[in-house]
């Protein structure tokens, strides 16, 4: 464990907690894409399949449970909680995300480190996570302005993988033959997808005006 990875995990945890808090307290999911939340639930479900078979540490297992629990409860709130579901913007959240799932699955079957069930699904989860934010970013461009909790959620979510990149650089230089091209490339693509969001988020913060 290094400071970059810990910072990354904390940033990631705060992002899901910010969103869960927003939905739970003000009973609103305005501006939030349920498709991105569903993709993230699939990402965690397919990445943490080994949660019971391979024990890494208490921290690792605890965080896996936090991410699984939060992503599935956010989807549950947005799909089945009456008050929250009413604030869901169905007309605008129209990204065909099942195509993302299918193409990532095909890609994982083609490009992976080892052709085993767990490894292919783990690779699939990396590909899917890289593009999971797309429905949310598309929805963002359609809704005029977004409330700052949703903005903070996206900012933290985009930042966590950027911190992971620093963690991979650190591990590359400190651990012999720590090389994982698939993880690195997907992590880089994922972070780059947030580039223009970060730009506008920074502008709104600098000029102290609403993000739109």
């Amino acid at each position: 464990m290094n400071i970059f990875r810990l910072a990354g995990d904390m940033t990631h945890m705060f992002s899901v907690l910010v969103l869960l808090l927003k939905i739970h307290t003000i009973k609103s999911c305005a501006g939030v894409s349920v498709k991105t939340q569903e993709l993230y639930a699939i990402v965690f479900a397919t990445r943490y399949l080994d949660i019971f078979t391979s024990f890494v540490s208490i921290y690792n297992t605890f965080m896996k449970l936090v991410f699984l629990g939060s992503s599935f409860s956010i989807v549950w709130y947005m799909r089945y909680h009456k008050a929250v579901h009413r604030t869901y913007d169905r007309e605008q959240d129209t990204f065909r995300h099942w195509f993302l799932v299918l193409s990532c699955l095909l890609l994982a079957l083609l490009i992976h480190e080892k052709f085993t069930f767990l490894e292919v699904l783990w690779t699939f989860s990396l590909y899917l996570e890289a593009v999971a934010i797309l429905p949310q970013l598309v929805l963002l461009q359609r809704t005029r302005n977004i409330d700052n909790l949703t903005g903070q959620y996206i900012f933290l979510l985009g930042g966590y993988r950027g911190l992971y990149i620093l963690n991979w650089i650190y591990r590359y230089f400190t651990e012999p033959h720590f090389v994982h091209w698939i993880t690195w490339i997907t992590g880089l693509v994922q972070t780059l997808l947030y580039a223009d969001f970060f730009y506008y988020y920074f502008l709104s913060w600098k000029n102290n005006k609403k993000l739109n």
Binding site: R5, D50, S54, E113, K114, W122, Y164, H180, T183
Partner: peptide, 10 residues
């Protein structure tokens, strides 16, 4: 082995 090594991240 490799698998356990890189599956130590979230």
């Amino acid at each position: 082995d490799i698998a356990s090594q890189h599956h130590d991240e979230l």
